[in-house]
């Protein structure tokens, strides 16, 4: 075999690819489901914490800040391993899927809270006061006046962070979730050929490249003119 033939046999092997692409496709489905669940639950929880923090209850805010700092400082893989291998020892067994979902939700929640909170703070105080002066209650002020303005500030950093954490679904492979990387790795183990891994990388590119390009566009679209 020449060098190129050897390379093609290992990395672009059509026979292996034909055998394993359905598995990778299944993995793609799992990745998309997992990512969607994480994005929804993480952003909702993050927003909820930011709103709670607006109430200004000191001990509550300290607790929120601590939780947020904790999940910003811990590597996501450490959180996943802790929840997956740790909780069964305490009598709570979670599947790898649920452990990954829960872990990355907590991480996204922490980052989202920080971004939402920063954005809410960036809305001038006069907006709060004027809305309150018009007789709106706390929640309507937040919903109708402050959050719409805060969202515009929050969206670019939030998009980038959400993408970065969603890519963390690949970490699920460490705790036996059959998402793209997990499917690709078992395909590689069975066939003794890294072609499934190449297919997996391709699947991630198909999934995330449009998102990354869209994020770049969003960043420019929402940028404040200086």
């Amino acid at each position: 075999m020449t060098g190129w033939e050897g390379f093609a046999f290992s990395f672009l092997n059509a026979r292996v690819a034909a055998e394993y692409w359905p598995k990778i496709l299944e993995g793609l489905g799992v990745t998309i489901l997992l990512a969607a669940l994480i994005v929804v639950s993480g952003l909702v929880l993050g927003l909820a914490l930011a709103v709670l923090r607006c109430l200004g209850v000191k001990p509550l805010n300290w607790a929120i800040i601590f939780v947020v700092d904790l999940f910003r400082a811990l590597p996501p893989l450490v959180v996943i391993v802790l929840i997956y291998f740790g909780l069964p020892a305490a009598g709570i067994g979670l599947s790898g899927f649920v452990a990954t979902w829960l872990s990355l939700t907590l991480v996204l929640m922490a980052f989202a809270e920080e971004i939402f909170w920063g954005s809410i703070c960036a809305v001038p105080k006069g907006q709060w006061e004027a809305a309150r002066g018009l007789g709106l209650r706390f929640l309507p002020v937040l919903r109708l006046v402050v959050l719409p303005q805060a969202m515009r500030i929050a969206i670019p950093p939030l998009t980038n962070r959400t993408i970065a954490i969603t890519k963390g679904t690949a970490l699920g492979s460490v705790v036996a979730v059959a998402e793209i990387l997990g499917a690709a790795q078992s395909g590689m183990a069975f066939s003794g050929n890294p072609t499934p891994l190449m297919l997996g990388a391709l699947a991630y590119l198909l999934l995330f490249l449009p998102v990354v390009v869209a994020a770049r566009w969003i960043e420019r679209r929402f940028a404040w003119k200086r």
Binding site: F11, K167, M188, A201, Y204, V212
Partner: peptide, 24 residues
């Protein structure tokens, strides 16, 4: 830049670690 921002770092790491030995 966009390609390497789109591929999860763990995928890249495993591709390098488990893939390159096949290329010798």
């Amino acid at each position: 830049i966009d390609t390497f921002r789109a591929i999860p770092p763990l995928v890249l790491l495993i591709l390098v670690y488990a893939g390159l030995p096949f290329a010798g």
